[in-house]
Amino acid sequence: MAEASGEEGQSSPSWRRDELRQLRRQRRLRRLRRRFHSDPVMLRLPRRDESTAATRTSEVQVGPILETEELLGLAGTSRRRKARTDIFSRLSFWKRVAGILISVAVILLLTWITLNPLILTHVEPCPDDWLYYKKKCYYHSEAMEDWNSGQVSCSAYGASLAVIENHQELSFIMHRIRMVDFWIGLRRKGDKFFWVNGEAFDNNLFHVNVTNDGDCVHIDSNFISTRSCSSLRNWLCTIGQSNPNTNS
């Protein structure tokens, strides 16, 4: 009897260990089941057909270990799918952002080109030895001629004696043209002055010092005056959008 009780005492701890392992396995299985059924990712998994579900149920019933592995496998698969979906979503987002930025850049470029015509078309807008200012070209002669000959010489270039349209152009001519005495395309006819293109002179543009010496207008370092059209001076030609080469 003593020997039997001793053997029973020795076998009891092993049996208890197996029972504890079984209980721990069952608790782990219950936790995985709760996690599986409460996981929103798992709830979005597509449902299998009945035959597949029945087969999987039979596989799960083989034992707690197989069911645990099955749940872990499904959870891992769902997370890998979710990770791939997140990657694709981020890539799609950045593609949309890049497309928007490119569209905005193209719109801004087209707007700038519309408001500011290409400078390349004006790299060399004037012939050699001519000055460029505000869409007009200017040429000051080295030779000296009378007013009519100066107009003929300008016409040979497809230009005319200078027609001044505004105060900015007058300031440019007075400060940038390296001549101190030259003809411009203004001439008196009766009591009025006219430009060589036929337009009447605006008295608000500048004052003409009228002399008894002639009717043709020249600019010197200090004054804009009339002189004899037959006197010899340098001349200033202009060619631009409003200067036809007409003789007078």
Results as ranks from 00 to 15, higher is better:
residue 89 S to D: 07
residue 127 P to H: 00
residue 164 I to N: 00
residue 202 D to A: 11
residue 189 K to Y: 15
residue 36 F to R: 05
residue 33 R to Y: 14
residue 65 I to P: 00
residue 232 L to Y: 02
residue 108 L to S: 14
residue 35 R to L: 05
residue 81 R to M: 07
residue 211 T to D: 05
residue 55 T to V: 09
residue 149 S to P: 08
residue 232 L to D: 09
residue 28 R to H: 15
residue 15 W to D: 14
residue 114 T to H: 14
residue 66 L to G: 02
residue 242 S to Q: 15
residue 44 R to K: 11
residue 198 G to R: 11
residue 181 D to T: 08
residue 147 W to M: 02
residue 90 R to N: 14
residue 201 F to E: 09
residue 159 A to M: 06
residue 65 I to N: 11
residue 236 L to N: 03
residue 223 F to T: 10
residue 165 E to S: 12
residue 53 A to I: 13
residue 179 M to R: 12
residue 224 I to T: 03
residue 44 R to N: 09
residue 117 P to I: 00
residue 91 L to I: 13
residue 171 S to V: 03
residue 193 F to R: 06
residue 53 A to P: 02
residue 164 I to D: 05
residue 121 T to L: 11
residue 193 F to A: 03
residue 61 Q to N: 15
residue 138 Y to R: 10
residue 159 A to P: 05
residue 173 I to K: 01
residue 83 A to N: 10
residue 226 T to Q: 03
residue 32 L to K: 15
residue 140 H to I: 04
residue 13 P to Y: 07
residue 155 S to L: 02
residue 245 N to K: 01
residue 39 D to W: 01
residue 162 A to R: 00
residue 66 L to V: 09
residue 77 T to K: 11
residue 170 L to A: 11
residue 19 E to K: 05
residue 204 N to R: 13
residue 154 C to V: 06
residue 110 L to S: 11
residue 63 G to M: 07
residue 213 D to T: 05
residue 18 D to E: 14
residue 103 S to G: 05
residue 103 S to V: 15
residue 36 F to S: 06
residue 18 D to T: 12
residue 7 E to H: 04
residue 159 A to T: 07
residue 219 I to H: 00
residue 200 A to W: 01
residue 52 T to F: 08
residue 71 L to R: 15
residue 182 F to H: 06
residue 65 I to S: 07
residue 26 Q to F: 02
residue 223 F to N: 09
residue 55 T to K: 04
residue 239 I to Q: 12
residue 244 P to W: 06
residue 237 C to D: 06
residue 146 D to S: 12
residue 27 R to P: 04
residue 147 W to E: 06
residue 106 V to T: 09
residue 184 I to M: 03
residue 8 E to T: 14
residue 125 P to D: 09
residue 172 F to P: 09
residue 119 I to H: 06
residue 171 S to I: 00
residue 43 L to R: 13
residue 126 C to N: 10
residue 238 T to R: 00
residue 46 P to L: 07
residue 171 S to P: 03
residue 168 Q to M: 05
residue 24 R to S: 13
residue 25 R to M: 15
residue 205 L to M: 08
residue 58 S to D: 06
residue 57 T to R: 12
residue 53 A to G: 00
residue 44 R to T: 14
residue 30 R to E: 05
residue 49 D to C: 15
residue 75 A to S: 05
residue 157 Y to V: 04
residue 20 L to Q: 13
residue 74 L to I: 10
residue 168 Q to E: 14
residue 30 R to K: 04
residue 62 V to H: 02
residue 244 P to C: 04
residue 153 S to D: 01
residue 203 N to M: 02
residue 56 R to C: 10
residue 124 E to T: 11
residue 94 W to S: 09
residue 85 T to H: 08
residue 23 L to C: 12
residue 40 P to H: 03
residue 103 S to D: 02
residue 100 I to R: 15
residue 8 E to L: 07
residue 31 R to S: 12
residue 199 E to N: 07
residue 212 N to H: 13
residue 145 E to R: 12
residue 154 C to L: 14
residue 54 A to T: 11
residue 162 A to C: 00
residue 147 W to G: 00
residue 77 T to P: 08
residue 237 C to R: 00
residue 131 L to M: 10
residue 29 L to N: 08
residue 98 A to G: 04
residue 168 Q to K: 01
residue 30 R to D: 13
residue 59 E to Y: 13
residue 120 L to T: 11
residue 81 R to T: 06
residue 248 S to Q: 10
residue 136 K to V: 07
residue 165 E to A: 13
residue 214 G to R: 08
residue 34 R to Q: 05
